[in-house]
Design a protein around this nucleic acid. Structure first.
Length: 245
DNA sequence: TGCCATGTTAAACT
DNA sequence: GAGTTTAACATGGC
């Protein structure tokens, strides 16, 4: 569920069904004031990175699925103890389980940088480049997971992008040649859309080239598995094909 | 069966 | 205080 494209899929499912609808009930154990939602009409459902945003007049419910979050539409499919938030609209409704729910006051456009959202029409590669230049001593494997720069990128996207562009995960940003840096930014977005397409087809796993893999498809040598960088997330790479600058 | 993971935050350290 | 490390959360697949 968790990476940006998966959240966009949820947005695309919920938006046509619930936008413009008025709340008739709220359930769940999220630590939020449920009275806030009373009789409110959904203004918009959007996604920014890994955040699902349900906008109401004056506030927004932010759903973050973390590692184990899930949801269902129109019927509750999980036990009450894992039900964080259910928004009910007459007979219809959406149920969110084991996720983080936060109320954001005001207009999300005031605090979300849509130009940093990998899947947004407003994605701004030049801005991403500028943000990368500001963290020269960071490893690229950490930079790719930085939501301030690549909102929506997760560990799968990280591993696949680095494999695609043949860049060693522990390369420091300042050492990446300009063309390679451009490729990094381009592929982060490209792969996000491939992820989206394959996720919709339920064939995402099948298309993994590096993530969880044991052997390099290109040179047939074993891939390294390492908890790399400050983020210490699983990193799969080929020391033969992925260049360290 | 136990381990581990598509994630993040806050507390506890140095 | 900054930077880091650790713990906590909590479900499902292998």
């Amino acid at each position: 569920m968790p990476e940006g494209p998966s959240i966009l899929i949820i947005k695309e499912i919920l938006d046509p069904v619930f936008t413009g609808k008025r709340i008739t009930g709220v359930k769940g154990n999220a630590k939020v004031d449920k009275d806030l939602f009373r009789n409110k009409k959904v203004e918009a459902i959007r996604s920014w990175g890994k955040h699902l945003l349900i906008q109401f007049p004056g506030f927004t419910a932010r759903i973050h699925f973390l590692l184990f979050g899930s949801y269902s539409v129109n019927e509750q499919t999980k036990p009450a103890k894992s039900l964080r938030l259910a928004l009910l609209f007459g007979k219809k409704g959406v149920y969110f389980y084991t996720c983080s729910v936060k109320i954001l006051e005001g207009d999300p456009d005031d605090f979300y940088d849509w130009e940093g959202n990998l899947l947004s029409k407003k994605w701004n590669p030049a801005k991403a480049r500028k943000k990368l230049k500001a963290i020269p001593s960071a490893m690229v494997c950490d930079a790719l997971l930085n939501q301030e720069i690549f909102a929506g990128a997760g560990n799968i996207i990280k591993n696949e992008v680095l494999y695609r562009i043949r860049l060693h995960p522990e390369t420091l940003i300042k050492n990446i040649p300009p063309r390679k840096l451009a490729a990094l930014i381009t592929e982060a977005r490209n792969y996000s859309f491939d992820f989206l397409k394959w996720k919709k087809e339920l064939t995402l796993k099948k298309h993994w080239l590096a993530h969880t893999k044991k052997t390099c498809l290109r040179c047939k040598l074993p891939l390294v598995k390492k908890y790399a960088g400050k983020t210490k997330r699983r990193t799969f790479f080929c020391t033969n094909c992925q260049v360290k600058y």
